[in-house]
Design a protein around this nucleic acid. Sequence first.
DNA 1: CATGAATGAGAGTTCATTCAT
DNA 2: GATGAATGAACTCTCATTCAT
Lengths: 209, 209, 209, 209
Amino acid sequence: MPPTVTKALKPRKTPSQSRSRVTVDAIYEATIQVLLSQGMVGLTTTGVAERAGVSVGSMYQYFPNKQALVYALNDRFLTRLAERVEETCARMLGRPIAEATDALIDTYWAVKTERPELTRALYRSVAELDNDALIYAFAARVDRATTDMFRHAPDIPDDEVEQTNLLLTTVIYGSVRNAFERGLGPQEIAVLKTGLKAMCQDHLRSIGS
Amino acid sequence: MPPTVTKALKPRKTPSQSRSRVTVDAIYEATIQVLLSQGMVGLTTTGVAERAGVSVGSMYQYFPNKQALVYALNDRFLTRLAERVEETCARMLGRPIAEATDALIDTYWAVKTERPELTRALYRSVAELDNDALIYAFAARVDRATTDMFRHAPDIPDDEVEQTNLLLTTVIYGSVRNAFERGLGPQEIAVLKTGLKAMCQDHLRSIGS
Amino acid sequence: MPPTVTKALKPRKTPSQSRSRVTVDAIYEATIQVLLSQGMVGLTTTGVAERAGVSVGSMYQYFPNKQALVYALNDRFLTRLAERVEETCARMLGRPIAEATDALIDTYWAVKTERPELTRALYRSVAELDNDALIYAFAARVDRATTDMFRHAPDIPDDEVEQTNLLLTTVIYGSVRNAFERGLGPQEIAVLKTGLKAMCQDHLRSIGS
Amino acid sequence: MPPTVTKALKPRKTPSQSRSRVTVDAIYEATIQVLLSQGMVGLTTTGVAERAGVSVGSMYQYFPNKQALVYALNDRFLTRLAERVEETCARMLGRPIAEATDALIDTYWAVKTERPELTRALYRSVAELDNDALIYAFAARVDRATTDMFRHAPDIPDDEVEQTNLLLTTVIYGSVRNAFERGLGPQEIAVLKTGLKAMCQDHLRSIGS
DNA sequence: CATGAATGAGAGTTCATTCAT
DNA sequence: GATGAATGAACTCTCATTCAT
């Protein structure tokens, strides 16, 4: 059911010259700024270009259309996220499942905490259809990493890996997202993190016996 | 941080005459149809009016502007959701916390399952800023109901109610949402539900001792 | 080899209400004015709308895009032309070929003379690809009429009709067009008309014997 | 009524160095390619430069603006055409008018047949106003040649030369153009050529007596 | 001289909203 | 009240042209 990309959404060219690099980076940053301050609705091409101190024409030299801007942002963000998760999973290969899960939560939480507003802004931007494909792709990528991690854990039977992975990731990702969308204070956030970890541990202990 | 409403978003009047009622309902339904088939981007006033078999002018008789349409939809949906939760909470007043939690999950899950695509469409529509206020309001309302339920549970100390409520609701709402956004099959969905319930029970048992 | 139409080029709706009629007519006339004074290059949607005393939005209510404007103009013009030719052909059914040819030249010449600048402007506008289809269609229509006329002439063998028709129409249409494109004075034009008629007569006499 | 040139349309300099020569030729050829494949609408400066394997900047070294490109193309083509006609006329000096006319038709037809699509493309490009001047100039040049040829024919009275020239050239040029614009097959084209020649001969015989 | 990134005026098009009928 | 034609600000995107490197 993953939707198909109907438009060119990738940057026209990977910028290598220094001048281009600066321009592209300015555009990225401007897109984030505008997205945060005006939201998806207020994200206009001229607005972004202006904020980036660049002409519209220049922008279109690197991004074939408006969607490509947001797409690129999501791509960057998700790539970073996926890399982080993969890193963690690699580091936790062979460790007991409880430890692995804890590490996963830590990693996920950390990424979200780094630029929380950007995270929220991006979640919303996904409404523009074509990004769905991107999301699915990254979900699959991350899924592969965590599944692998769990499969190598010494304390979980092979035939439970899939199911456990599905449950844990769904609960973790969903809870983390929700935690950050509720506009809570840092204290409550901290409490939630501890609670989530506890819940997972309790459950793992319960099925482990 | 809750955003403030800057526009008139409510329907101009509560329609009481029968003819109006029909018109308004047609508009509601048309909005849903368009939202589902075209997404937020393709939701135009003329499009909705046409689908509803009503003139744009008439539509503006009942909804002062485009946002009001989506606002009303969210309002309806959230009201129904809140009522259902409140109902459950009332029914579970005084019951042990494990039972109460189970019932909460069942209720929440049931509401989502009823019109899953509409649910997703609405989630996305929230991107239009002003609906945030609505969401916050309903979150608070539902929170009051669940807190109340947990406070009357015989097996939980008063000073843990707030925390437990925050954790459980965050995890439940987040997980349920995530479960439905992943585009999973019914089997996996069912597995997830069972798993989520188990996790909550395990945790409650753990802190209960 | 006739090109295919790739866009909607026809007016959105045939205007029936009086207000619409006025609007559409104003747009037609404005398009002609702009086409004559600025040429195809200077024909902008806002320019036409302004000249017509109408908002761009209104224009787009009746014409789905810029091309449709020119398309409509060509359509109108060619329809009128075709009707005139068909009329003449009908009137000349059964007449000797010499007379028929003379009448055809007169008709064609008359149409061109009526609004010569418009004629030239339209010829040029055809450069916009999709109008080719229109041209082909009308060429075929007119061809049918003239072929029919010649077939009913008493003084031409059946197996020469096709060829004679092709030659005469090619020469007549081409010559008339060229005559008007050279920017000649009325005197020279008149001389040309006489000369063209004479040429055709001479040839017919020659092959008739 | 001949339009006036408002912009610099000629190449900046006559290229004499060998490197320049190659560049300019590449640009010429690229312009033709693009014109044929994309039409006048798709003829962009960057597109041509790319096809020519040259930077836009370089192109502007040789052609002051976009129009100059098309202008140069027309210039080249028309010059070749004029030269061919002048050649024929020179060769036919003093020959009887019938022969001369036949040769003229042959020449004109041959030029058109050589690169028919280019011919059509150029005809269309003329829509860009300023080329009109060019056309008029060449028309006059060719006219001079043919008039001269006819004036030296032994079998036509001096006071009929002008008129005959006007008629013959108008009919020939118009018919040839039309023949090639109708999208006919080679057979029909051949028939037309024979027919056109016959018509001219018949007429000349008729006025000659 | 060559390059091609940068420019930005201006084009086509959409759509929320109004108001004469 | 109902209608839907009219409005026009705002948006996305193109492309001829320039000029620092």
